[in-house]
């Protein structure tokens, strides 16, 4: 879907991005992470030509991005900028409906879409629709920024620290919502964050940037299991690495189908880290597992977190 080939970018003679090669497949959830100034925003903005690259090629759906008119390219990619940038003279509804309006959607369709997005982002449509951005909290503004990016069902979603200003509970809700949207629509997402836990939760692939180069790229599990160098090891957290590894895997991957246990069940989608937390909190070494519809389908043991269960117990 998006392909960087030996891309470089200089700011006034100083190299910000060097020889960056990266392919983001269709439907992938790619998270760019790295310290401040490592080039995350620059990389993201090169995709929709807000920043023009100096070297190499960037391809979108197989065609070089320079073959598209910048406006056309941008309308096909939702974009949530780091500083939110809502239009202060437009209502929430007008802000969210900006891209659909540019694309010439009929009014009623825009209105319905705004309602749908506000509900999805846990904001009451009737309360928020007609408000101006200055009457919104920072977190609410950020959600409107995300809604604006999602509005026209873009095939690619570019998001620069979209959950930075949110409280942990709202962030958690929106991360879950993001995963649901992405799974349901098959949108390709490129998201920038500072937060490694957010990256592990959301990403199908994490790209760690350091000083304008890719330090390591891979699935959360690959990176946590085998950090490529000291920088990555530090970045993913030396002492928390094990816990983060657990966070990167689902209960469904390690459970024993058909086995039974007593107590309140876990869901298959829960992470192993949540499972560990429950083992400790409940003071047990065995927990029942239910599927999304609430039917009991098996159990998981404490030891399974360390070592996958024998294969004959697996489905």
């Amino acid at each position: 879907m998006i392909r960087f080939e030996h891309v470089g970018k200089d700011y006034a003679g100083w190299t910000a991005i060097e020889d960056l090669s990266l392919t983001v497949e269709k439907g992938e959830f790619c998270v760019l992470i790295g310290p401040s100034g490592s080039g995350k925003t620059t990389t993201l903005k090169m995709i929709n030509r807000l920043i023009e690259h100096d070297r190499g090629r960037i391809l979108f759906e197989g065609a070089e991005i320079r073959s598209f008119a910048p406006e056309e390219l941008r309308r096909r990619m939702g974009y949530a900028i780091q500083s939110i940038g809502l239009f202060p003279h437009w209502t929430v509804e007008e802000n969210i409906g900006a891209v659909p309006k540019l694309l010439g959607w009929p009014r009623a369709k825009i209105r319905d879409r705004v309602t749908e997005l506000l509900e999805m982002l846990t904001l009451d449509p009737e309360r928020y629709r007609a408000r101006y951005p200055r009457h919104l909290s920072g977190g609410e503004q950020q959600r409107i920024g995300v809604a604006r990016a999602l509005a026209a069902n873009p095939s690619v979603l570019l998001m620069d620290e979209p959950f930075g200003a949110l409280d942990p509970v709202t962030r958690d809700t929106l991360q879950a919502e993001m995963l649901r949207i992405q799974a349901a629509s098959g949108t390709t997402v490129v998201l920038v964050t500072h937060d490694i836990d957010e990256a592990i939760r959301l990403a199908s692939r994490i790209v760690i940037l350091e000083g304008g180069r890719i330090a390591q790229s891979g699935s959360p599990r690959e990176i946590l299991a085998a950090p490529a160098n000291d920088f990555v090891a530090d970045f993913v957290g030396r002492s928390d690495r094990g816990l983060r590894l657990l966070a990167a895997e689902r209960v469904g991957d390690r459970m024993r189908r058909g086995e039974t246990a007593v107590g309140e069940p876990l869901t298959v989608d829960a992470s192993l880290r949540e499972a560990l937390s429950l083992f400790v909190a409940r003071n047990v070494d065995r927990l029942p597992v239910q599927d999304g519809s609430g039917a009991l389908i098996g159990a998981i043991r404490l030891a399974d977190l360390v070592r996958p269960p024998p294969s004959e117990a697996a489905p």
């Binding site: 941008r74 939702g78 900028i81 809502l86 239009f87 202060p88 003279h89 891209v99 540019l102 604006r148």
Partner: peptide, 27 residues
Amino acid sequence: VPTAAIEAARGIGMTRGQIFRAVEVPL
């Protein structure tokens, strides 16, 4: 005019003329 609003306008695919008319002038 907030630079973030102009950048967002560019980012969602407004043309220079649209940004001028719909964002810069009213603000």
